[in-house]
């Protein structure tokens, strides 16, 4: 096979970028001794933090999906005043520094705020608690769900929804039997993205809740207190767990062949 110069040029540059992503990760895996990884994986603090990170991010994703998916549908189907502004607002968490996002969320849920007071009435604490972590995670990750689900709904022909209405289905029914199933791939991929982005969040979470410690915070703490060689095994374990999760979720969400 002969390559044109331009193709070679593309392959060379693409390879460099891929190498840049893979290199540091592989390097980290290689330079971490299996014994250290094994040792860290038995550390209850590490285990607890990974469990906490996973379930809080999962919970944040599912709770916010209840509003995020309808919002995505609304944005895909309706035109309204200031829609572009709303679309901009949804992307806002992606562009602002995450430490700033953390500060904003903290102000929103602190014990002096309305939400904080409301929460403490029913015994729900946000600051330094899983609920606060979930909010911080959701704040920075919800755009991924909304945007992906919106793309999915946009790809569903309005005709099919009209046909369902004409066949006697209520708009609720149409949403659950036509729109949502047809947009399902994008919705699930949005959920996975949101979950992934949430569990890898550090900046916003560390401001709202240093404790209980999610794994990104734990990695940072070990690095600060004990140095690189103590932080590395935890990072390796967390990356491995994340990878297993994503591969599993991707496989589960793969469409059936006949669909």
């Amino acid at each position: 096979m002969r390559f044109q110069p331009f193709q070679l040029f593309l392959i060379l540059l693409s390879g460099l970028v891929l190498l840049f992503i893979i290199g540091p990760l592989v390097g980290m895996f290689v330079s971490t001794s299996p014994a250290d990884v094994f040792e860290s994986s038995k550390d209850p603090e590490v285990q607890r933090s990974i469990g906490l990170t996973l379930w809080v991010s999962m919970a944040a994703t599912l709770v916010f999906a209840l509003g995020g998916i309808p919002l995505a549908y609304l944005l895909a189907r309706k035109d309204f005043l200031l829609k572009r502004l709303v679309l901009g607002i949804i992307d806002l968490p992606i562009v602002i520094p995450h430490s700033a996002a953390g500060i904003a969320v903290l102000g929103f849920v602190s014990r002096d705020s309305y939400l904080g007071q409301l929460g403490s009435l029913i015994g729900l604490d946000f600051v330094g608690a899983p609920a606060g972590i979930a909010l911080a995670m959701a704040f920075v990750s919800i755009p991924f769900l909304v945007n992906s689900a919106r793309d999915g709904f946009l790809a569903v022909p309005v005709r099919l929804e009209q046909a369902a209405l004409n066949l006697g289905a209520s708009p609720f029914r149409v949403f659950f039997t036509i729109s949502l199933p047809l947009a399902w791939r994008n919705v699930v991929s949005g959920l996975i993205l949101m979950f992934a982005r949430g569990m890898s969040e550090f900046g916003a979470v560390v401001i709202v809740a240093y404790h209980p410690m999610i794994t990104p915070v734990l990695i940072w703490e070990r690095f600060g207190a004990f140095g690189l060689s103590y932080a590395r095994p935890v990072a390796v374990i967390f990356i491995a767990v994340s990878l297993v999760f994503f591969i599993l979720l991707r496989m589960l969400s793969r469409p059936r062949k006949d669909a």
């Binding site: 099919l160 046909a163 004409n166 066949l167 047809l182």
Partner: peptide, 19 residues
């Protein structure tokens, strides 16, 4: 409302549900 009319419309593009 659309769903309460006694009108059965067959669209030109048919709109058979693909899923």
């Amino acid at each position: 409302r659309i769903q309460s009319r006694p009108m059965g419309l067959v669209f030109q593009d048919l709109a058979v549900f693909p899923h």
